[in-house]
Design a protein around this nucleic acid. Sequence first.
RNA 1: CGGGGCAUGGCGCAGUCUGGUAGCGCAUCUGGUUUGGGACCAGAGGGUCGCAGGUUCAAAUCCUGCUGCCCCGACCA
Length: 569
Amino acid sequence: MRLSQYPINTVKETPAEAEVISHQLMLRAGLIRRLAAGIYTWLPLGLRTLRKVERIIREEMDRAGALEVLMPAVQPAELWQESGRWEQYGPELLRLKDRHERAFVIGPTAEEVVTDLARRELKSYRQLPVNFYQVQTKFRDEIRPRFGVMRGREFLMKDAYSFHADEASLTAGYALMREAYTRMFQRMELTFRAVRADTGAIGGSASEEFQVLADSGEDAIAVSDGDGFAANLELAPALAPTAPRPAPSAVMKTVSTPKTRTIAELTALLGVPAAQCLKTLIVEGDDGAVVALILRGDHELNAVKAQKLPGVANPLRMATPERVLAGTGTEPGSLGPVGLNCRIVADHSALAVADFVCGANQREAHLTGVNWGRDLPEADAADLRNVVNGDPSPSGVGTLRIVRGIEVGHIFQLGRKYSEALKATVLDTAGKPLTMLMGCYGIGVTRVVAAAIEQNHDERGIIWPEPLAPYAVLLVTMNHAKSEGVRAAADALYASLTAAGIEVLYDDRDARPGVKFTDAELLGIPHCLVVGERGLASGKLEYRHRRSGGNEEIPADGVVEFLRSRMAG
RNA sequence: CGGGGCAUGGCGCAGUCUGGUAGCGCAUCUGGUUUGGGACCAGAGGGUCGCAGGUUCAAAUCCUGCUGCCCCGACCA
């Protein structure tokens, strides 16, 4: 591709709307353009990378024995009503009507369609297991699209669905996908973790997210430094402290704490560490009463864990101040577990604190020197908090570190949720109908591109991992318009590299060197060849490596072999 | 959904408070010089100031309504 024939439009200024690096660089390098909120056009250079990602995914899916299909993006409402998701899905599901007033959705995913396909096509257990996949545009009407292509509304997704006769087959199929995903992301040269995830509303037994590690990621994950353990923060269990609670050494006292409502204000006023304070959160119970949750001041409530407690409303709802007053007889800001007139559940670590500080259940007053078992009854213990840096790993090996990740893939064992709802059965060995088990496996193809940039850039621009680069080599000329020698040499080089099957982007624009070099760094093509009069006289070219910044003179003949050796490495 | 903000040439912005000829930088086009790290000189084109009403001799500017977009929040006791 000759750049002179491509209306490339790189931009110096960072567009105002782009917050994260990948979004900024994708706009500046001319990979994407925004059409509407969360909806983007892919320009030629961006599309090439998108295609590379797709290709790796297809190769690994095919290798794992999955079968590619292409299902409709527009799906009839009936199928969604049949699965029950027409009601469940909420406003994220884009619904529309055709000219006959028939209801349709633009698919955010394709469980219904694929299950319908399976129930029509699959007749016998002998046809199982089977895995159908597609790479297709999806639409989710996100509350708040942001970060460019990372959380867009329209996006390209690879979704796969496997069908099985029994649990063993499902487990094996899931494991196969797990391997395939691992291979894909390794081939893309991304740093990632497979992370234990919440099965959430979709249900099912096993579920893992593939998270590309990046500070800008939207998900917090807990990883162990001792082994491969990694879990979504929502799911990471906090182990109960093993050390016994210290014996009480202080007397309980009431102290006046005017205008002190937060833990930060409390520690500032009393000079005690946050870990010595307990906070009391009032949530709605499932029976009309409220429940008090007690946490250490330096810990955060984990909603997923809390809403799983018996007696607590699911989903979790914080009680309103009026409800707090009605249920406990006092107001938020100075609540505490002592003498509190409702059910109390304390986090393990909160129960391990002696001589603690907490609200006095009176306005503008707190208690100090409080002790469980002496000043108030021992409370029910539970795991209520998010794990923090330095917690012991639930795997028993190492300590946890909280990192951020971008979810690029998610694999699930779905079980029979959809096959049951849509009556997808095959005949078993006895000739009886057998409801199939399903797995589903997604990858956000567009998001992978953004994630790759988040992980591979510097202050000058993108640094593509070779397998994802739109071109392998950038050929740049100096003084292109004036120097016939340069032009002839570069044209010949372009021809021979292309003939050798190397993907070359040829910057044959009549632009100043500074412009060309700056664009080269912004675009992030891994290998760069510079043809200028300076080296030409002595039969030399300049080779630059984007990632290392390396810069060397090489002989003009033998360039193909030289590049091959560098590309292999 | 709640709160805040923005809408002026392709992009980034000033002008709005205090009504009176629409401006700057980048980009684009023409001519010339320049050519190994975002050049310079001279010239040019390009804007119904988001939309619809209203006030006024006069509206980008004041008032009303609407639309679009961006940011924050939906974890604090």
